[in-house]
Nucleic acid binder design. Structure first.
Lengths: 259, 259
DNA sequence: GCTTGACATTGACGTTAGGTCATAGTTTAT
DNA sequence: ATAAACTATGACCTAACGTCAATGTCAAGC
C-alpha cells in the first residue's frame, strides 16, 4: 500500500492530480482509511500507468475512463480518429510556422529599414546632421543606408528626386478631390513605388513617413513651399493609403491561413 | 459606424467575442451610446482585423494586446519564440502520431487475433461447435484462424500440443512456489512463446485466456484432470504475468515518448 | 507529554477564450 | 401596437489541474 506522496513520487504526478482523478472517478484509491487518507495498491499503480500513457497520447481523461472501464469501448477506432486529428493539427501548425516565418520576415524588413526613411532630397549638410541623429537613434545601420544612396550616380539621384517632385506636384493638382479620393490614392501608389527605389518600406515606415512629412520642420517647410496645405494633406492621404494596404495584406494572409 | 451584429458578421466572430474583447480592453467600441449600445468605426475594424490575424497565428489575447498597445513591444522576438514553440509542438505531435500508430498496430494484432484463442487441443466435434460460436461472436475472421490451424501437418499439431502439455506439467511441478514465483513466471514465458506458434497474443487475450482456463467448463475440466488446483492457479499466475508484461511495455513506450 | 515538521484532508478560486443560457431593455418593421 | 430582431448585463460552463487556505494527522526527538 502506497500513500499519496509515494504514488505521486513514483508516477511523477502531483498529489493534486491524484485527488482530481479520485474526484472524477478515474482512479479511486484501493482503500480509504478512517481518517480519510488514500492508499493505493499495485493494481492501482498499474492503472495509473495506463492512465498516464493514454494521457501522453493526448486523450482526454473522460476518454481514458471509457477506455479503461467500458469493456466494449472501441479503442482502435478512437485512436484512429485521434490519429487523424493529430495529423490535421500537425498540418495546421506547419502552416502556422510558415506564416509566422513570413510575418517575421516582413517585420524584420521593417526594422532593418526603418532607419532609412528620413534621407531623401536634402543637402549634404542636412544629411550629415541627420546621419548623426540616425546613428544615435538607430545605431550603425543608418549610416549604411546613406552610403547606399550616395553610391548612386548623380544622374540617377537627379532622376529619382525629379520623379519624387513630379509626384508631389500631381498630388497638389488633385488636392481638391480630397485625401482619400481614388485619384490621390492612385498617386500614392506611384509614390510608394518611388520609395521602393530606396528600400522596401513597410506599413509602419510609411505611416511614420506620412507623419514626418507634417510634423518634421524640415519636411514640413519643403512641402509647405510647394503648397501650404500639402503637409497635412499628405499625412491624411498616406494614413488612409496605409490603412487600405494593411487591410489588404491582412486579408491575403488570413486567406492563405484558411486554405 | 457599425453595430455589434454588423461587425460580427463582417469579421466572422460572434457578438460574445466582441463583448469579451471589450471586457478585457482588447477592442473597445469607438462609441458607446446612452443605452449602452456599442458602435465601431473603420479604425476599430482595422484593429479587429489585426487581432484576428495574430489570433490565427496562435498568440494569446494578452500578447496581442501588448503587440497592439505597447509601442515598444518587441514583436519580432515574441514571434521568434512563438515560432520556436510552434516547431517544438510540431515535433511533439509527430512523435505522438508515431506512438499512436504503434499503439493501434499493437491493438489491431489483438483484435484480429482475438478469435483464435479458444481452439487448441480439442476434438473435431468440439472444434465445430466453437467455430459456430466464434463466428457469431467475432465474425468471419474466427473461422479463418481455425483453417490456419488445420493447415498444419498432423505431426506439427502433435508436437505443438505436446509442448503445451509439457509446460502445464512443469507448472504443476512448481505450484508449491506460488503463482507469482519466479519459477512459475519463467514457465509462463515459455507458455507465452508457445502461444506465439499460433498468433501474436496481446495483453487482453492473455488475460482472457487465463480467465477462460478457469471459467470455461471445457478448459477447466481439461486442467482439473491434470491437477485440481491448476485452473485457479493458472488464472492467478497468468494475471500476474500479464500485469508485469504490461507494466514493462508501458514503461518502454513512455520512455520513447520522452526522448 | 509536547513540539515540530512532513504529510494528509477538503474547499474554493484561477487559468483560456469565449459558449450558452437567462432576463430584460431597445429598435425596427409591419 | 405588436412581434421580430437586436441589444445589454450577469452568471455559470468548459479541461486539467495549480495554488492557496484552513485544518487534521502522524512519527520523531526533547
Amino acid at each position: 500500500m502506497y500513500t499519496v506522496k509515494q504514488v505521486s513520487d513514483l508516477a511523477g504526478v502531483t498529489p493534486r492530480t491524484l485527488h482530481h482523478y479520485d474526484q472524477i472517478g478515474l482512479l479511486k484509491p484501493s482503500q480509504v482509511a478512517a481518517n480519510g487518507y488514500r492508499y493505493y495498491d499495485e493494481q492501482a499503480l498499474l492503472r495509473l500507468q495506463q492512465i498516464l500513457f493514454y494521457r501522453e497520447l493526448g486523450l482526454e481523461l473522460a476518454q481514458i475512463k471509457s477506455v479503461l472501464d467500458d469493456k466494449d469501448f472501441d479503442l482502435v477506432t478512437a485512436l484512429q480518429s485521434h490519429h487523424a486529428a493529430l495529423q490535421a493539427e500537425v498540418v495546421r501548425l506547419q502552416t502556422l510556422v510558415k506564416t509566422v516565418e513570413g510575418t517575421i520576415m516582413h517585420l524584420l524588413g521593417e526594422v532593418k529599414m526603418s532607419s532609412k526613411n528620413v534621407f531623401k532630397g536634402f543637402s549634404p549638410e542636412q544629411e550629415r546632421e541627420y546621419n548623426k541623429q540616425a546613428v544615435e537613434q538607430w545605431g550603425e545601420g543608418a549610416a549604411e543606408s546613406i552610403r547606399s544612396w550616395n553610391e548612386r550616380s548623380q544622374e540617377e539621384k537627379d532622376r529619382i528626386l525629379a520623379e519624387g517632385g513630379e509626384i508631389y506636384q500631381e498630388i497638389i493638382a488633385k488636392m481638391d478631390q480630397g485625401p482619400e479620393s481614388e485619384e490621390v490614392q492612385a498617386l500614392l501608389t506611384r509614390w510608394h513605388q518611388h520609395l521602393r527605389c530606396f528600400y522596401e518600406p513597410t506599413f509602419e515606415i510609411l505611416r511614420g513617413l506620412g507623419n514626418t512629412y507634417n510634423d518634421h520642420p524640415d519636411f514640413n517647410a519643403t512641402f509647405t513651399a510647394m503648397d501650404p496645405a500639402l503637409p497635412v494633406f499628405l499625412q491624411q492621404a498616406i494614413n488612409h493609403y496605409v490603412d487600405a494596404l494593411e487591410l489588404e495584406w491582412l486579408e491575403r494572409e488570413m486567406n492563405t491561413l484558411q486554405e
